[in-house]
Design a protein around this nucleic acid. Sequence first.
DNA 1: TCCAAATTTGACCAGTTAGTCAAGAATTTT
DNA 2: AAAATTCTTGACTAACTGGTCAAATTTGGA
Lengths: 213, 213
Amino acid sequence: MAQSAARSNGGKQSRIQTENRALIMQAALDVFSTDGYRGATVDRIAERAGMSKTNLLYYYPSKEEIYRSAIEQTVEAWLDPFDAIDPDGDPIEELRRYITVKLKMSDQNPEASRLFANEVQRGAPLVGEFLSTRLKALVDEKVAVIRTWIDQGRLAPVDPYHLIFTIWATTQHYADFEVQVQAILGKQAKKPGFSEQVAHAVLSILLNGIRPR
Amino acid sequence: MAQSAARSNGGKQSRIQTENRALIMQAALDVFSTDGYRGATVDRIAERAGMSKTNLLYYYPSKEEIYRSAIEQTVEAWLDPFDAIDPDGDPIEELRRYITVKLKMSDQNPEASRLFANEVQRGAPLVGEFLSTRLKALVDEKVAVIRTWIDQGRLAPVDPYHLIFTIWATTQHYADFEVQVQAILGKQAKKPGFSEQVAHAVLSILLNGIRPR
DNA sequence: TCCAAATTTGACCAGTTAGTCAAGAATTTT
DNA sequence: AAAATTCTTGACTAACTGGTCAAATTTGGA
C-alpha cells in the first residue's frame, strides 16, 4: 500500500532504494547541470537514470525535490575543504592545499560545479539564504584568518574577500568552462597529467603573480 | 502581404523594427541568461519585451533564432578587448587594461556574461565551433605574444594559456556569481566605488600574487 | 513456499510550450 | 485621402510537461 519510498522507517533504506537514489542523483546532476532547473525534464532524468519517470517519482516526490537533493549534496561537498583551511597552518601551504583540492573537485566532478554555478546564475532561488547566512559567516571567519596572516606579514596585503573570490573563480572555471578549455587546448586537455599541469599553472599565478621576478 | 519582418529589403530597418529588435534582444538577454536556452520561454521574453508573443515571432522567426542573435551579439563584444591586446605595448599595462575592461563589462552587462557562461556550460552547442576555430586562433596568437614577453623577461614565466583562463575566470566571476558576491559582501557590493575596488583587488592579486613582498 | 511489502510501469490528465493563421490596426507612400 | 505596406494580436494546434492512479511485478522474510 506504500505510495512512495517513505523515509519514515527510521531512515533505513533497502538495497534497491540506495542504488536507485544514487542513480537518480547522478542523472539529476548530469541533466540539471547542463539544462538548468527549468530546462531539465523529469523524463530526461529518468531516462538517464535508466528507469521510468513514474518510478523516479516514487523515490523523489517532485522535480523540485530531486533538484533540492542534488544541490544540498553539492553544497556540502563544496564547503568541507573551505572549512578545513587551518588558521594555525602556514598561509601559503593552506591556500595551496585548498586550491589544489578545489581543482581536483572540478576535475573529478565538473557536473556538481556546473549545477551550483547554474543555481547561482539563476539568482540562487534555493541557496540564496544559505549564501547570505551560513556561507557568509564561514567566509567572514576565513577572512579574519587571512587578515591575521596579512598582519603578521605572512601574506601579501590583498583584500581577503576578493582573494577568496579569485580562488573560487579560477578553480571552478575549469569545470564550468570545461568545453571552452578543451576547445582551446585541444587533446592536451584530456591527457593524464593535465590536472596537475593546471594546478601548477594556477598556483604559480595566484601565489606569485605575473610581474617578473 | 509580408508574413514576417523580412531583412530582404537591403538590410534597411524601419524605426519600429530597430526599436523592437533592440527591446527583444535586451529581453532575450535577461531571460536566456537566467533560465538558459531550454528553460526560457518565448512567452516570457515577449512579456519582458512588452509585446505579444506573436509579434515577437514576427521579428524573429523562432526561439532558436532569437538565441542565436543574442549569443552572436555577446561574442562580438567579448572579443574586441581581447583582440586589442597590443604586442608592442607594455605587458603589465596591456594586461591591466584588458582586465579592467573585462571587469567593467561584467559590471555593466552581467547578463551577457551569464548568457555566454550558460551556453558553454550546456556544452556550447551553438558556439562550439567558434570556440575551437576563431577563438582558439585568437588565443594562440595572444599566447605567442605573452610568450615573447616572458622570453624578454618582461613577465613572470607563467603558462600563457592558463594566465588567459585565470583572467577570464576572475573577471567573469563577478558577473556570473553576482548574487553570491552580493550575498557575501552585503550592501557594500552595491556602493558606487565597488567596481573600482574589485578592479584594484583583482589586479593586485593577479599582478603581484599573494606571497609576502 | 507463501505472502505482505516494496518496486515498477502504462495509461492518463491538466497545464504549458513553440509556432501558425487570418484578420484587424497603425503607419507610410502615393 | 486612398492605397499599400507594415505592424500587431487573439484564437488555435500539436507536442511536451510534471504529476497521479491503479494495477502488475518483484523482493525478502516467515
